[in-house]
Amino acid sequence: MPRALRMRLVAVITLGVALLIVGIALFARNRLTGQPVGWFAYAPLTNTTFTNDASGRLVLMQSGSWWGLALASIGAITVSGALGYALASRHRRSSATE
Protein backbone atom coordinates (compact mmCIF):
# COMPACT_ATOMS: atom_id res chain seq x y z
CA MET A 1 0.00 0.00 0.00
CA PRO A 2 1.47 3.38 -0.95
CA ARG A 3 2.51 5.66 1.87
CA ALA A 4 0.09 8.46 0.93
CA LEU A 5 -2.86 6.06 0.89
CA ARG A 6 -1.78 4.57 4.21
CA MET A 7 -1.55 8.03 5.80
CA ARG A 8 -5.00 8.94 4.44
CA LEU A 9 -6.41 5.70 5.82
CA VAL A 10 -4.88 6.38 9.24
CA ALA A 11 -6.39 9.89 9.20
CA VAL A 12 -9.85 8.54 8.34
CA ILE A 13 -9.66 5.89 11.07
CA THR A 14 -8.50 8.50 13.59
CA LEU A 15 -11.38 10.79 12.63
CA GLY A 16 -13.84 7.91 12.95
CA VAL A 17 -12.54 6.93 16.38
CA ALA A 18 -12.71 10.57 17.52
CA LEU A 19 -16.32 10.85 16.32
CA LEU A 20 -17.17 7.60 18.06
CA ILE A 21 -15.66 8.73 21.38
CA VAL A 22 -17.27 12.18 21.23
CA GLY A 23 -20.62 10.63 20.35
CA ILE A 24 -20.51 8.17 23.23
CA ALA A 25 -19.47 10.92 25.66
CA LEU A 26 -22.26 13.21 24.45
CA PHE A 27 -24.81 10.41 24.70
CA ALA A 28 -23.64 9.52 28.22
CA ARG A 29 -23.66 13.16 29.38
CA ASN A 30 -27.32 13.66 28.45
CA ARG A 31 -29.13 11.18 30.61
CA LEU A 32 -32.29 9.48 29.46
CA THR A 33 -35.21 10.73 31.49
CA GLY A 34 -38.24 8.63 32.31
CA GLN A 35 -41.37 10.72 32.06
CA PRO A 36 -44.76 9.59 33.26
CA VAL A 37 -47.15 8.89 30.43
CA GLY A 38 -50.24 11.05 30.58
CA TRP A 39 -53.19 8.77 29.92
CA PHE A 40 -56.61 8.16 31.30
CA ALA A 41 -58.33 4.81 31.46
CA TYR A 42 -62.02 4.60 32.09
CA ALA A 43 -63.31 1.21 33.08
CA PRO A 44 -66.93 1.43 34.14
CA LEU A 45 -68.33 -0.97 36.69
CA THR A 46 -65.01 -2.59 37.61
CA ASN A 47 -62.89 -2.36 40.71
CA THR A 48 -59.62 -2.25 38.73
CA THR A 49 -57.24 0.56 39.61
CA PHE A 50 -54.97 1.77 36.84
CA THR A 51 -51.60 3.11 37.94
CA ASN A 52 -48.48 4.27 36.20
CA ASP A 53 -45.61 2.23 37.61
CA ALA A 54 -41.91 2.39 36.73
CA SER A 55 -42.22 -0.07 33.85
CA GLY A 56 -44.87 2.07 32.19
CA ARG A 57 -42.67 5.12 31.81
CA LEU A 58 -42.00 6.72 28.48
CA VAL A 59 -38.27 7.25 27.93
CA LEU A 60 -37.51 10.56 26.25
CA MET A 61 -34.18 11.43 24.69
CA GLN A 62 -32.90 14.97 24.78
CA SER A 63 -31.44 16.56 21.64
CA GLY A 64 -27.91 16.05 22.97
CA SER A 65 -28.56 12.33 23.19
CA TRP A 66 -29.72 12.25 19.57
CA TRP A 67 -26.59 14.12 18.45
CA GLY A 68 -24.41 11.75 20.46
CA LEU A 69 -26.10 8.74 18.94
CA ALA A 70 -25.69 10.19 15.44
CA LEU A 71 -22.00 11.02 15.94
CA ALA A 72 -21.26 7.60 17.42
CA SER A 73 -23.02 5.93 14.48
CA ILE A 74 -21.13 7.98 11.89
CA GLY A 75 -17.85 7.25 13.68
CA ALA A 76 -18.53 3.52 13.82
CA ILE A 77 -19.49 3.42 10.13
CA THR A 78 -16.37 5.40 9.19
CA VAL A 79 -14.04 3.14 11.16
CA SER A 80 -15.61 -0.06 9.86
CA GLY A 81 -15.53 1.21 6.26
CA ALA A 82 -11.89 2.24 6.48
CA LEU A 83 -10.83 -1.02 8.12
CA GLY A 84 -12.82 -3.00 5.56
CA TYR A 85 -11.11 -1.11 2.75
CA ALA A 86 -7.68 -1.75 4.28
CA LEU A 87 -8.35 -5.46 4.70
CA ALA A 88 -9.77 -5.81 1.20
CA SER A 89 -6.84 -4.00 -0.40
CA ARG A 90 -4.41 -6.21 1.53
CA HIS A 91 -6.24 -9.34 0.37
CA ARG A 92 -6.41 -8.08 -3.22
CA ARG A 93 -2.67 -7.37 -3.23
CA SER A 94 -1.74 -10.75 -1.76
CA SER A 95 -3.99 -12.65 -4.22
CA ALA A 96 -2.52 -10.72 -7.18
CA THR A 97 1.02 -11.92 -6.32
CA GLU A 98 0.01 -15.59 -6.25
Rank of each mutant, 00 (worst) to 15 (best):
M1R: 15
R3S: 10
R3L: 08
A4Q: 11
L5Q: 09
L5C: 04
L5A: 07
R6P: 02
R6G: 04
M7V: 00
M7P: 00
M7Q: 08
R8L: 07
L9S: 11
L9M: 11
L9R: 10
V10F: 07
V10N: 15
A11K: 12
A11Q: 14
V12H: 00
V12P: 02
V12K: 01
T14L: 10
L15S: 13
L15H: 07
V17H: 08
V17Q: 01
A18C: 08
A18G: 13
L19D: 03
L20I: 00
I21P: 10
I21V: 15
V22Q: 05
G23E: 02
G23Y: 00
I24L: 15
I24R: 12
I24T: 13
A25G: 11
A25C: 13
A25I: 03
A25Q: 12
L26M: 15
L26V: 13
A28K: 14
R29A: 15
N30F: 13
N30T: 13
R31Q: 09
R31C: 04
L32W: 02
L32Q: 12
L32N: 08
T33F: 04
T33A: 14
G34Q: 07
G34E: 03
G34P: 01
G34D: 00
Q35G: 04
Q35I: 03
Q35P: 04
P36D: 10
G38P: 10
W39D: 11
F40G: 10
A41L: 14
Y42K: 07
A43M: 08
P44H: 10
P44L: 00
P44Y: 01
P44W: 05
L45S: 12
L45F: 10
N47P: 04
N47W: 02
N47I: 04
T48Y: 01
T48N: 07
T49N: 10
T49E: 05
F50L: 09
A54D: 05
A54I: 01
A54M: 03
A54W: 00
S55W: 08
S55N: 05
S55G: 14
S55A: 06
G56V: 04
G56S: 12
G56N: 09
R57G: 05
L58V: 04
L58G: 05
L58N: 11
L58E: 04
M61I: 03
M61A: 10
Q62L: 07
Q62D: 08
Q62I: 01
S63M: 05
S63R: 15
G64Q: 02
S65G: 13
S65K: 09
W66T: 09
W66P: 05
W67G: 11
G68V: 06
G68Q: 06
L69R: 15
L69C: 13
L69V: 06
L69S: 15
A70M: 10
A70G: 15
A72R: 09
I74Y: 02
G75W: 05
G75A: 13
G75T: 01
A76Q: 06
T78M: 11
T78F: 00
S80D: 02
A82N: 12
L83M: 15
L83I: 15
G84V: 00
G84F: 06
Y85Q: 12
Y85C: 10
A88T: 01
A88S: 08
A88C: 01
A88L: 14
R90S: 14
H91C: 09
H91E: 02
R93F: 04
R93A: 14
R93S: 14
S95K: 12
S95T: 09
T97G: 08
T97S: 12
E98T: 14
